[in-house]
């Protein structure tokens, strides 16, 4: 029987330390650094993930979730690392006004 996609995902509060990438079993290798993301965040290829969960204990910000347990939070995440959105909004607003 074919395996379905995995259930783990990394939310937007990832700080890009990369600890999870190397916890992912070598043959699976489902975690990758997102190209072009200034914050250097990582993501999981759902089709490759085998739901082993080895990445979770390595994360220093608790940003890896099992959608079956936590649900899906649109990748936004919770906690202190979401505060940067306020700074981003402030900066975007300044650019809009300058235009």
């Amino acid at each position: 029987m074919a395996r379905g996609p995995g259930s783990f995902y990394i939310d937007a509060t990832c700080i890009g330390c990369g600890a999870c990438e190397h916890a992912c079993p070598g043959k699976v290798d489902a975690i990758y650094k997102v190209d072009g993301d200034f914050l250097g965040r990582f993501a999981i290829v759902l089709d490759d993930c085998i739901d082993c969960g080895l990445c979770i204990p390595t994360c220093p910000v608790d940003c890896i979730h099992d959608a079956r347990v936590d649900g899906i939070t649109q990748g936004e995440g919770e906690g202190g690392y979401t505060r940067i959105k306020e700074l981003q909004a402030w900066a975007a607003d300044r650019v809009d006004h300058a235009d």
Binding site: G79, G80, Y81, R83, I84, L87
Partner: peptide, 24 residues
């Protein structure tokens, strides 16, 4: 002065990120 407003947001980010690390 305008930049200090941005620093205000940065300050909140610094402290909240720190507290989240402590939580973890």
């Amino acid at each position: 002065d305008d930049g200090m407003e941005g620093v205000t947001f940065l300050w909140a980010t610094i402290v909240e990120e720190y507290l989240q690390r402590c939580d973890r």
